[in-house]
Measured scan of single mutants.
Amino acid sequence: MEQGTVKWFNAEKGFGFIERENGDDVFVHFSAIQGDGFKSLDEGQAVTFDVEEGQRGPQAANVQKA
């Protein structure tokens, strides 16, 4: 798993971006967030995640709040 920081996340649209430790950004969809209840992330929040190849390039999977 990688570690990163939430760059931004739009809860209304259900997606955002995580900044990886290497400085690259990776797309995150709310469906990739682990846990119960409303799935959202806060700007600046530390997270761990896997990276999978999506239809439009790399995207975060198995996102967990650190």
Rank of each mutant, 00 (worst) to 15 (best):
E21C: 12
P58Y: 11
G14W: 02
W8Y: 08
R56V: 07
V47Y: 03
P58M: 10
E12S: 14
G14N: 03
I33Q: 02
F27I: 03
D36M: 11
E43W: 12
E12L: 14
E19N: 12
V51E: 04
G35A: 10
V26D: 00
A32S: 10
F9M: 03
K65L: 12
R20S: 07
A66W: 12
E52M: 13
G23P: 02
D42Q: 14
A61Y: 11
D50W: 13
K39F: 06
D50R: 10
Q55F: 14
G16S: 00
G23E: 09
M1C: 08
I18T: 01
K7C: 07
D25W: 13
G4A: 03
I33H: 02
S40H: 12
Q64D: 06
W8C: 06
M1P: 12
I33A: 02
I18P: 00
D25E: 10
G57H: 05
F38R: 09
F15S: 03
E43T: 14
K65S: 09
T5E: 05
K7E: 02
V26F: 04
N62C: 06
F49I: 02
K65E: 07
N62R: 09
E19P: 01
H29L: 06
Q45W: 10
Q55N: 12
A60I: 02
A11N: 10
K39C: 06
G16K: 00
I33E: 02
F30I: 06
H29Y: 05
D42P: 08
E2A: 09
E12I: 14
A11Q: 12
E43I: 15
D24F: 13
E52K: 12
F30W: 15
S40D: 07
Q55H: 12
N22G: 11
E12V: 14
A66M: 14
Q45R: 05
G35S: 09
G54Y: 06
Q34H: 10
V6W: 03
G16T: 01
S31R: 11
G4Q: 01
E21L: 15
E53V: 14
G23I: 05
Q55E: 11
T5S: 09
A60C: 05
N62F: 07
N22K: 12
G14L: 03
G4E: 01
V51R: 04
K13W: 09
K39N: 06
Q45L: 07
M1D: 08
A46Y: 11
F27M: 03
T48N: 08
Q59H: 09
G57V: 04
A11G: 09
A60G: 04
V63K: 00
G54P: 03
G57F: 05
F15L: 05
E53M: 15
G37D: 06
G54A: 08
Q3A: 12
F9Q: 01
R20F: 05
K7G: 03
K13P: 02
S40N: 08
D24I: 14
W8R: 04
G4W: 02
F17Y: 07
G23H: 09
V47A: 02
Q3T: 14
R56M: 09
G37W: 06
I18N: 00
K7T: 04
L41Q: 02
K39D: 05
D42G: 10
E19C: 12
I33R: 01
G14V: 02
F38W: 15
F9R: 02
T48W: 14
E19R: 15
V28W: 03
Q45T: 10
A11F: 10
V28P: 00
E2D: 09
F38C: 09
G16C: 02
Q34N: 10
L41A: 03
D36V: 12
A66V: 15
G35V: 10
F49Q: 01
Q3W: 14
K65R: 11
V28G: 01
G44W: 05
A60M: 01
P58R: 12
A32D: 06
Q55I: 14
A11T: 13
D25G: 05
A11P: 11
E19L: 15
E19D: 08
D42N: 13
K65G: 08
V28I: 07
A32R: 06
V47F: 02
K13D: 04
A32I: 03
G16R: 00
S31F: 05
A60H: 00
Q59L: 07
P58C: 07
F9H: 01
R56Y: 15
W8M: 04
G4L: 01
T5Q: 10
P58Q: 09
G44E: 04
K65C: 08
F49T: 01
G54M: 07
H29E: 03
E43N: 14
G4S: 02
G54E: 04
E21M: 13
Q3K: 15
D50Q: 13
V28R: 00
M1Q: 14
N22R: 12
S31A: 07
S40P: 04
G57C: 04
K39G: 05
F30A: 06
A32Q: 08
V6C: 07
V51M: 10
Q55W: 15
G14D: 01
G4T: 00
L41S: 03
D42A: 13
D50C: 10
K39Y: 06
Q3I: 13
G16A: 02
F27H: 02
N62I: 04
L41R: 02
S31V: 04
G35K: 06
E53Q: 15
A46R: 15
F27E: 02
K39L: 10
F9E: 00
E53W: 15
L41M: 05
V63P: 01
F49G: 00
T48F: 13
V63S: 01
F17V: 08
F17R: 04
Q3L: 12
V63Q: 00
Q64I: 11
D42W: 14
G4F: 01
A11D: 07
G16L: 01
A32M: 06
M1I: 12
M1Y: 11
